[in-house]
């Protein structure tokens, strides 16, 4: 029967957890795409390091550098578990900016993954972004038709 399902989601790259290289994981490619899309949106750039409050450089798998948060938001994949974590130093009033950027990267990733998954299931897919009625959060609507 037709139904409605609500999910909570976390990013876990299963192929990485099985010991395969990060670059071979289809989820990693989508995650990279999501960070690049977010960088474009914020007119920022993608890197491989962040800096902390003291200016110390920290390596990560990919980072998002923007004018709003020049220290950078890092993405780190745990090679043992495949779990994805964000690395950042938001000391000094950057908490809201960082939270928005993390949410946006996550939303972009999930939307890309849903569109990919539906295409793999032979759906014809259409993606639309809708502005929120309240606040600045957007909703991404992915429609698939068989």
């Amino acid at each position: 029967m037709s139904q409605i399902t609500s999910y909570s989601a976390e990013i876990v790259l299963e192929h990485v957890a099985e010991g395969r290289p990060l670059e071979d994981d289809p989820g990693w490619r989508l995650l990279r795409e999501a960070v690049e899309a977010t960088a474009q949106e914020y007119r920022g750039r993608v890197g491989a390091t962040i800096v902390d409050y003291f200016g110390r450089v920290r390596p990560c798998d990919i980072s998002l550098i923007t004018a709003a948060f020049p220290r950078g938001l890092g993405v780190v994949v745990d090679r043992a578990t495949g779990r994805v974590a964000f690395l950042y130093d938001d000391y000094g009033g950057y908490g809201d900016v960082v939270r928005r950027q993390i949410n946006r990267v996550t939303q972009n990733f999930l939307s890309l993954a849903v569109a990919h998954a539906l295409r793999a299931m032979n759906y014809q897919v259409d993606v639309e972004e809708k502005a929120a009625e309240v606040g600045d959060e957007k909703t991404v609507v992915v429609r698939g038709v068989l």
Binding site: S8, N103, L110, S111, V114, L118, Y123, V142, R143, G144
Partner: peptide
Amino acid sequence: SVEVRVDGRGRV
């Protein structure tokens, strides 16, 4: 058809 909504807090 299926319509999937992803909100700004990662809820699907």
